[in-house]
Structure formats: C-alpha cells, structure tokens
Computed example of a mutant assay.
Amino acid sequence: MRRNEKEVTNTKDIEKILMDNKVCRLAMVDENKPYMVPMNFGYSNGCLFFHCAKQGRKIELIKKNPNICFEVDQLVKLNKAKLACDWGAEFKSVIGSGRAQFLEDSKEKKAALNIIMSHYSERVFEYPDAMLEKIIVIKVAIHEMTGKQS
C-alpha cells in the first residue's frame, strides 16, 4: 500500500468494515478480461458466503477458475471544497482474494444462508428443501485481505 498511514492492519478492524457494509463486489476472470458483480454476502471465520441462481456467468467463471477477488467499501463523508483539487472523501474499504467453492450439502447451505441472513436481519429463517435445490451457495476461503481508511 502506497499510503501506509491509511492502511488498516488490525484483523478485527478489517472484519468490522466487512460487517458494517452490505454489498460485496466479487471479481472473477473471464479469459483475459475482469468480470465483477455486486452481491449480498455474509462473513464468518475468514470466509465470505454468497448465494445465487445455479446458472449464470459468475457460476461458469468460478467453475473454470475458482480464484476470486473481492471488495467492500463505505463512503463515510464527502469533503466538498471551492476548488476541485481540494475535494476529498473519507472512506473505509477492504480488498482481498480467496478461493471459491460451491457448497452442496443442505446442512452446509443452510448454515451459510444463516450467516448471510444474519448480516441483514436478526430474524431466524427456514429454508425449504425445494428452495435449497434451486440455488448455489458459494463459500470463499479468504487467503488475504487488506483494509484502508481515509
């Protein structure tokens, strides 16, 4: 990181940025081009969890290459000024990489869905088997992540 004073190194602080935000951008490689999608997510014990339909571009890309990159950010404050070059932003962000895998077992899917839903709600949910069969749950074991704030 070029600006060391902006780096967040404490794992708990990085995890707090993840937990405080609601959208994670998941990036994959499509041959030699990047492909990124915003997704709802959950985080627990060094892993990210996502769910989606069984078909689609991201599923095909993960099957070809399970190595992914992710990003979460939060605009804290926009600092306006008279001159354009004096504008700035206060923000928090996390960028990382990991390896994606598809969860097949219904117990694992339910546990992952509980992690995702707990990120957005305090309610407890039921997941009918028919619904579980229609979705894919993606688990990303995080290999590295860095935090930044300004």
Results as ranks from 00 to 15, higher is better:
residue 1 M to T: 15
residue 3 R to Q: 14
residue 7 E to P: 10
residue 8 V to T: 08
residue 13 D to A: 13
residue 13 D to I: 11
residue 15 E to M: 09
residue 17 I to T: 04
residue 21 N to L: 04
residue 22 K to E: 10
residue 24 C to R: 06
residue 28 M to L: 14
residue 30 D to F: 11
residue 33 K to M: 13
residue 33 K to D: 14
residue 40 N to D: 14
residue 40 N to E: 15
residue 41 F to V: 05
residue 43 Y to I: 13
residue 45 N to A: 10
residue 47 C to Q: 05
residue 47 C to N: 11
residue 52 C to G: 05
residue 54 K to S: 03
residue 57 R to T: 15
residue 59 I to P: 03
residue 59 I to D: 04
residue 60 E to L: 08
residue 60 E to S: 11
residue 62 I to L: 11
residue 64 K to L: 13
residue 66 P to N: 11
residue 67 N to I: 14
residue 68 I to P: 01
residue 71 E to F: 11
residue 72 V to P: 02
residue 72 V to K: 00
residue 77 K to N: 05
residue 82 K to Y: 15
residue 85 C to Q: 11
residue 87 W to T: 14
residue 90 E to W: 13
residue 92 K to C: 06
residue 96 G to N: 09
residue 96 G to C: 14
residue 100 A to Q: 07
residue 103 L to W: 04
residue 106 S to P: 08
residue 106 S to T: 12
residue 107 K to P: 06
residue 111 A to H: 00
residue 113 L to W: 00
residue 114 N to F: 00
residue 115 I to H: 00
residue 116 I to P: 00
residue 118 S to D: 08
residue 123 R to T: 10
residue 124 V to G: 10
residue 126 E to Y: 12
residue 130 A to F: 13
residue 133 E to T: 06
residue 134 K to M: 13
residue 136 I to H: 09
residue 137 V to I: 11
residue 138 I to F: 03
residue 140 V to C: 10
residue 141 A to E: 12
residue 142 I to S: 00
residue 143 H to Q: 13
residue 144 E to L: 10
residue 144 E to V: 14
residue 148 K to L: 11
residue 150 S to K: 04
